[in-house]
């Protein structure tokens, strides 16, 4: 498949997913009313529901999905490991810990921005510890091991907060947040997440060629003119800012970052640089569609996005794995 066709197709898919996300919800709104609002008119009720409630949710779905998709692709390329995903470095766990701290100590109720800001702060603390632990080593394995240490520590902190919760409701609140959701998000959330994600995406898109060169290992890449230290810095900061910003808004949504690069890779020439942009678009589409599914599937308790992405992702992932396994 040609690259232009692939990227065009995925972009259309993402736009369709975004439109679906605006159109589908708890209150059914006729397509004619939706079209009227999109055209700039429409009635007040429809406007309020679509613009103030659903549009931010759709935008966040696209942005968070895009970030998770591209960071999974960048991590797999950089660490040269098909199992890598954004959470490998531990920054999403430390971001989640930041959010949990906000919930546990009640900062989250003080101001809408308190939780996301603490989460982003958590991502940066995680990045700092990661940099200290991995030092100057250029080996991907050192980074993975340091990431496991950071992640385990952050998860332990989160467990401690659950353990010490003063009452079951506080624990439930934390659990609910950890499952991942885009419910009841406003334009203020968009304003917090979008700049972080945009910066993260730019930093990750930068190094496509360096990731291609890394196919030949560190010496091979360096001899092709790649400055590995700068590449690493850009990638780590990009992941911390972007994934930190995404986790801050949506909670921990697993699996998108792992599976999306695998889904798009067979449609490209399989070089790590070539899957960056397709992974961004496919991630945006997949997460937004999962968020639509959350709203359509009738359940008594509200279905969490993180749960749906895993249930939706695993079968697709397994089918692809079966088809692709001869290559691994």
């Amino acid at each position: 498949m040609s690259r232009a066709l692939l990227i065009g197709g995925l972009a259309v898919l993402a736009v369709v997913a975004g439109l679906l996300s605006v159109a589908v919800g708890a209150v059914p709104i006729a397509w004619a009313r939706i079209a009227a609002v999109l055209a700039g008119g429409g009635d007040d009720v429809a406007r309020t529901i679509l613009i103030d409630l659903r549009l931010p949710r759709a935008l966040l779905g696209l942005a968070v999905g895009a970030m998770l998709g591209i960071s999974g692709a960048a991590m797999q390329g950089f660490l040269r490991n098909p199992l890598a995903e954004p959470s490998v470095l531990g920054v999403s766990s430390t971001a989640a810990l930041g959010a949990v701290i906000a919930l546990y100590f009640g900062f989250a109720t003080l101001h809408l921005a308190a939780l996301p800001v603490l989460a982003i702060l958590g991502a940066f603390v995680g990045l700092g510890v990661l940099a200290l632990l991995s030092g100057r080593s250029e080996s991907p394995l050192t980074l993975i091991l340091a990431g496991i240490a950071v992640s385990t520590l952050a998860v332990a902190g989160t467990s401690l907060a659950l353990n010490m919760s003063p009452n079951p409701f506080a624990a439930m609140e934390i659990m609910n947040w950890l499952l991942g959701s885009l419910e009841d998000r406003s334009f203020q959330h968009v304003a917090i997440a979008l700049p972080c994600i945009a910066l993260g995406v730019v930093l990750l898109l930068w190094d496509g060629r360096a990731l291609d060169a890394l196919t030949l290992g560190e010496d091979g890449a360096t001899s092709l003119g790649v400055d590995l230290r700068r590449t690493r810095l850009r990638l780590l900061v990009g992941i911390a800012i972007g994934v930190g910003g995404a986790v801050a808004i949506s909670g921990a949504i697993g699996f998108i970052g792992l599976i999306v690069p695998h889904l798009v890779r067979p449609l490209t020439d399989r070089s790590p640089g070539a899957i960056l942009l397709p992974s961004l678009l496919a991630g945006a589409a997949l997460l937004t569609l999962a968020d639509v599914a959350v709203r359509i599937i009738p359940t008594t308790a509200e279905l969490k996005l993180g749960v749906v992405t895993a249930f939706l992702g695993v079968p697709i992932f397994l089918v692809h794995l079966m088809r692709e396994r001869r290559l691994w």
């Binding site: 040269r80 890394l214 020439d269």
Partner: peptide, 13 residues
């Protein structure tokens, strides 16, 4: 530079 060994991390053509 042609490094030693046959390091190849992705199944490229």
């Amino acid at each position: 530079y042609l490094p030693q060994g046959q390091t190849l991390h992705w199944p490229l053509t």
